[in-house]
Nucleic acid binder design. Structure first.
Length: 851
RNA sequence: GGGCGGCUAGCUCAGUGGGAGAGCGCUCGCCUCACACGCGAGAGGUCAUUGGUUCAAACCCAAUGCCGCCCACCA
């Protein structure tokens, strides 16, 4: 078995990735079996919006999920990793409308049917592109269970949930003030509003009072005064106590406005008097409710003013504002203008300024679900990683209000509400044939669709077949883990938890891992429109999937957001190449490889063998702990450090000759290390590990299917670690001397006092490229690491020796000062005191050797 | 307005009480028969500021300053 001729000198990810993905898939390794006797482990991948291509954040998220999926398979679970995508109602409708606009068309011209056809065509093309990208990332998803939120069976789940809520009496229809997007002509929820700083003007306007006097109010939106129905002041505001209950006269219109007292009015803001516009401001709406003020709707659904008979009628809000201000000024009502900075709400999908207005909407009562969710958290049913995000979730949950689930869009799940010609209402999962009350067959479905998050909220069980008691649902619910960016904790995670508890009686996942957000390298948000986006496919092509995944895992669960740094991805590409070449070296060792599983030969003869296996056991522990704790960066760094800095840099250098000579034990140990490293790294870097695994001797099947390393405590060998540690110190010191002395890279002589043992001395000499002498009749530069000296063909080690003495002396002084401090000796724990004493002793010995 | 996070080497980031770390970049020496996507040796940090707790602080506490995020009905 000698395969090095088949292995190119450099690892080429492109050459192997597609092949392995196809082989895994063909072998059915991604497919979950609900009847398996193994413990089940399931995850439903957060369905990407079907609005376009995946970005780097998706790549990161996919990597995190797939690391977990592959790890759990290797630790003996029956894993379901379910893929899917989301129709993303508003977002997709915007994409399609933009397309139509480019073609000079509107959806109204196209009509509902034509529009649906366009949407379906879009689903087909983009859906496929998204799935391809998930494959490119190596995601081990069960494609036989692919779900789309617009699939018939998923739609049925959504309808079932709606009906169930309706039957519980939680869904009702009511006029309320809502966040209205004039562009999308739809209401959106509070969570879909993005706040942005605006620099506006605060206008101070005089409102005369009936019977004399006036009250001055401050507003940034003078155009809304056309719908004013009151004036409010704080009840404790003595400045205004004389005008409570009086009536103000609305300038320009002459409408009579009751002056009411309400404690939400801030005395310190503006003049302390507030114009009340219940139809166009959420706070004013509440005031209006409390004081029975009239409610006027002053705006059309497209954002133009709705004030029949007035000169402002039909104007867009900003134009109306200009005109209102001009008129106020002309008539002497405008007192002053001040620059004013405040937050203005925008639609998070189309970025249009939100207009609060009154609209009749479908609402979902949340109290019962909220309380169940709070109770579940109270008993620790959901674990958050990092923990602090639980508070984000709980704080929002505690202040939860009814959810506006209706949207006035064309795209989405139509609410399953049907009204017959005689005014009877039917709410049913399937479209009824006739009215249950009057038998009329003239039924009209309500035009509203559901908030896209309504359907997303059902994801962990609707994907498994709910409401049917499917085999999958029984086997794989609840799922194990959900991982998302924190921006959708409330939009999505919280609602899944609530619906999961409500319909399934159990939280949908035990662990929530909130991953970081990737920013552009300058700290700005990564986005296509800013030109700061990074196309994951370019990265995959340039560095390979493994490098991108390893990078993703190394940053994904770090506590803060991360600025994208391509050099770190490149670092992992080099790492993959290092693994490749280390394998090439080991495979080039002549002779028959050890039979059977690696590690079966007697491995205790050589110091380096015992050492590297001891280090390996440490790496196994650290990698496993990192995955279990959702701190993948710890896993990556432990595997990286072992594979490169210990196995390649020290072990392979130590056994090169033995490998060249076909030493079976060295081969056995090297194969064992590679075998372990590939398994430990497989979840992170599936391709290179699978490829190299397949090149190791013996029949070994897929790395993907291999068992996760455990029980390697048997390799722990503190004595070997200590002795090899000494060897490394000696070698480091000789190298340092050689460099400082300007001596040639190789050659020189080493003499060591007996002590570390003949094997260690020879190993050190070999690694440092010096000859080990057996007599010290002609001493050279003394060393600190061990009693002995080194000498090179030319060049003196004295310079480094002197700087080393200086360094050691400084260290010694600090350490001794500590030991001389009575407080330290009295209060520090004994083991720390002991450590310091040992350090001082070691420094003394080293100094004695050098001086 | 409330809450949370960040501030550590030139850059991007690890590091949660006992001698400051990684990747990349930089300097110097090496194409040493696995790897120049490499090997070896280095330079480079008052761990944001101030105060406190402690025998001991990058790490714990308080305040401050920037940067970012989440939540919020002060018009």
């Amino acid at each position: 078995m000698n395969q090095e001729n088949e292995m190119p000198k450099a690892f080429d990810p492109q050459a192997i990735e597609a092949g392995w993905y196809a082989r895994w898939e063909d072998a059915g390794l991604f497919i979950a079996d609900p009847t398996s006797p193994k413990p089940k482990f399931s995850m439903c991948f957060p369905p990407p919006n079907i609005t376009g291509e995946l970005h780097l954040g998706h790549a990161l998220q996919t990597a995190i999920y797939d690391v977990i999926a592959r790890y759990r398979r290797m630790t003996g679970r029956e894993v379901l990793f379910l893929p899917g995508y989301d129709h993303a109602a508003i977002a997709t409708q915007n994409v399609i409308e933009k397309q139509l606009a480019r073609e000079g068309m509107t959806k109204e011209e196209l009509g509902r049917e034509g529009f649906d056809a366009r949407v379906n065509a879009w689903y087909e093309s983009v859906g496929a592109a998204i799935l391809d990208q998930l494959r490119l990332l190596g995601a081990s998803m069960d494609w036989t269970r692919l779900r789309f939120t617009m699939d018939a069976r998923y739609v049925r789940s959504v309808m079932t949930a709606f009906v169930a809520f309706y039957e519980r009496g939680w869904i009702y229809r009511a006029p309320r003030i809502v966040n209205w997007c004039p562009h999308d002509r739809s209401a959106i929820s509070d969570l879909e509003v993005e706040w942005e700083e605006h620099h506006d003007v605060l206008y101070f306007i005089r409102y005369p009072i009936e019977g004399g006097g006036e009250v001055v109010i401050a507003t940034v939106r003078p155009e809304t005064m056309l719908a004013d129905t009151g004036v409010a002041v704080n009840p404790t505001d003595e400045r205004y106590s004389s005008i409570f209950g009086k009536t103000a006269i609305l300038p320009l219109l002459g409408r009579k406005l009751p002056i009411v007292a309400d404690s939400v009015v801030e005395k310190g803001f503006g003049t302390g008097a507030l114009k009340v516009t219940p139809g166009h401001d959420p706070m004013d709406y509440d005031i209006g409710q409390r004081h029975s003020l009239e409610l006027i709707n002053g705006m059309h659904l497209d954002g133009r003013m709705n004030v029949p008979g007035l000169p402002y009628d039909g104007l867009p809000a900003l134009e109306a504002r200009t005109k209102v201000v001009a008129d106020l000024k002309a008539q002497g009502f405008l007192i002053k203008e001040e620059p004013y900075t405040h937050e203005v709400g925008h639609c998070d999908r189309c970025h249009t300024v939100i207009e609060p207005l009154i609209s009749e909407q479908w609402w979902l009562r949340m109290e019962v679900m909220r309380d169940k969710a709070l109770a579940a958290s109270a008993v620790g049913k959901v674990r958050w990683h990092p923990e602090r995000y639980e508070r984000t979730y709980l704080d929002w949950l505690r202040g939860l209000r009814d959810w506006n689930i209706g949207r006035q869009l064309w795209l989405g799940h139509r609410v399953p509400v049907y009204d017959c010609e005689n005014g009877h209402r039917i709410v049913a999962v399937e479209r009824p044939h006739d009215c249950a009350e009057c038998g009329s067959t003239k039924l009209e479905q309500h035009p509203d669709v559901l908030d896209t998050w309504f359907s997303s909220a059902l994801w962990p069980f609707a994907t498994l077949g709910w409401p049917d008691e499917t085999e999958d649902l029984k086997a794989f619910y609840p799922t194990a883990v959900n991982s998302t960016a924190r921006e959708i904790i409330n939009l999505w995670v919280s609602r899944m938890i609530m619906t999961g508890l409500e319909f399934m009686g159990e939280v949908p996942f035990a662990d929530v891992a909130i991953h970081c957000v990737v920013q552009a390298s300058d700290g700005r948000r990564m986005s296509k429109s800013l030109g700061t986006g990074v196309d994951p496919r370019e990265l995959l092509t340039k560095y390979g999937t493994d490098a991108v995944r390893a990078w993703a895992a190394s940053v994904g669960m770090s506590s803060q957001d991360v600025r994208f740094d391509e050099s770190r991805v490149e670092g992992y590409r080099r790492f993959a190449n290092k693994l490749w070449n280390a394998t090439r070296l080991v495979l080039s060792s002549p002779g028959t490889p050890p039979a059977g599983e690696p590690g079966t030969l007697e491995i205790h003869e050589h110091l380096e063998d015992r050492w590297v296996l001891s280090r390996l056991s440490y790496a196994c522990t650290a990698v496993t702990a990192g995955i279990e704790n959702f701190t993948f960066q710890d896993s990556i760094s432990a595997a990286y450090a072992f594979a490169w800095n210990e196995f390649c840099d020290w072990y392979l250098e130590a056994v090169k000759e033995r490998l060249r000579e076909g030493d079976a034990v060295a081969q056995d140990v090297a194969y064992l290390c590679l075998d372990y490293v590939f398994r430990l790294l497989h979840p992170f870097m599936p391709y290179v590990t699978e490829e190299l695994w397949s090149r190791l001797p013996g029949e070994r099947g897929f790395a993907m299917r291999a068992a996760w390393p455990e029980g390697e405590d048997r390799f722990v060998d503190p004595a070997a670690e200590e002795t090899f540690g000494l060897v490394m110190s000696i070698v480091d010191e000789i190298r340092g001397h050689r460099q400082a002395a300007g001596a040639p890279p190789r050659g020189g002589e080493l003499w060591l006092e007996p002590g570390p043992g003949r094997e260690a001395a020879e190993l050190a000499a070999r690694l440092a490229w010096v000859e080990l002498l057996s007599d010290d009749s002609n001493p050279g530069t003394p060393m600190a690491a061990a009693p002995g000296w080194v000498r090179f063909p030319f060049g003196s080690g004295d310079q480094r020796r002197h700087s080393e003495i200086k360094r050691l002396r400084e260290d010694m002084e600090k350490t001794e000062a500590k030991l001389a401090n009575p407080d330290f000796m009295a209060k520090a724990p004994p083991e720390i005191v002991k450590k310091m004493e040992e350090r001082a002793a070691a420094l003394r010995v080293a100094l004695d050797r050098l001086a």
